[in-house]
Amino acid sequence: MSNWTNDAILDALRGVVEPELGKDVVSLDLVEVEGTAGDHGAGLTLTVKSSNPAMHARKRMQEAVEFALERAFGKPVACDVKVIPLKQEERTLETRKVLPGVEHVIAVASGKGGVGKSTVSSNLAVALAQLGYKVGLVDADIHGPSVPTMFDVAGEKPQPVEVEGKTKIEPIEQYGVKVLSIGFFADPDQAIVWRGPMASRALNQLFTDADWGKLDFMIVDLPPGTGDIHLSLVQQI
């Protein structure tokens, strides 16, 4: 009888870490084993999902899996190892790179400015908080951040806080909602003139460098149009 059982294979792969997610591929449920094992694993197909779809990242993952199998079962390894990208719809709270502690993300957008996106975002966030949910609100409108004014926190400045040895931004809390806005970090008397990549990086920091904790809902108030900020949000979240 072959010693290439499913349990033995999964045990062998517990030391293979998904680099972008920081956990092993088995605990993240990223491994599928199909087929019947013959000598040296022949007849088996191992499919491993990678958070990074780039070819070089998938190649490194394949090499790590094959090395782990060689250590566990010896050479040669005759099974077929495939590494495929993790699909967006397959991502869970654990396998999401950005905002892993947020259950639901709601983006409020429109192709035209001045139609009430910030009003809808603010009222939606407060209404959800009043229903007992844990809610965060990101004001990503770099052209005219109005959420600080709507929440009566225009003069507030978010403070740094230490979280697990890392310095994070602590959101301002008002009306039961955690709030961060581009407006907190810009001079209200000066226009914000940022090119697309700079705006996208600033938005990314509001998500990745803030201590949001566990949230039921994250509301994102987007700028008008369909530009770099919108594309970055969809790709990351």
Results as ranks from 00 to 15, higher is better:
8 A>E: 12
189 D>K: 14
103 E>V: 08
191 A>M: 12
63 E>Q: 13
129 A>C: 11
158 P>H: 05
101 G>N: 08
51 S>T: 09
229 I>W: 00
220 V>K: 01
194 W>Q: 00
37 A>V: 10
199 A>K: 00
1 M>T: 09
210 A>W: 04
219 I>H: 02
118 S>Y: 01
83 V>K: 03
131 L>C: 11
14 R>A: 09
181 S>G: 06
164 E>T: 03
183 G>T: 02
3 N>S: 11
229 I>K: 00
209 D>K: 11
225 G>H: 05
85 P>N: 07
26 V>Y: 12
39 D>H: 09
213 G>A: 05
103 E>F: 09
23 K>W: 12
56 H>F: 04
131 L>K: 14
149 T>L: 11
218 M>Q: 10
206 L>Y: 01
115 V>P: 05
150 M>E: 02
7 D>A: 12
187 D>C: 03
228 D>H: 02
96 R>C: 12
37 A>L: 09
59 K>N: 04
40 H>R: 14
196 G>N: 05
29 D>P: 07
103 E>M: 09
185 F>K: 05
173 E>N: 11
56 H>W: 02
133 Y>C: 09
82 K>R: 15
28 L>C: 15
192 I>Q: 00
166 K>D: 13
42 A>H: 10
178 K>M: 14
115 V>L: 07
224 P>F: 02
14 R>T: 13
57 A>F: 05
97 K>A: 11
151 F>W: 02
177 V>H: 04
171 P>K: 09
37 A>K: 04
233 L>C: 03
69 L>T: 13
224 P>G: 05
11 D>G: 05
156 E>A: 09
56 H>P: 00
89 E>H: 13
15 G>T: 13
147 V>E: 00
142 I>M: 03
26 V>T: 14
231 L>A: 12
45 T>G: 03
92 T>E: 10
195 R>L: 05
88 Q>E: 13
109 A>M: 06
224 P>Y: 01
150 M>R: 02
126 V>Q: 06
86 L>Q: 03
234 V>N: 08
78 A>K: 15
78 A>N: 15
12 A>T: 04
74 G>E: 11
215 L>S: 09
71 R>E: 15
62 Q>G: 11
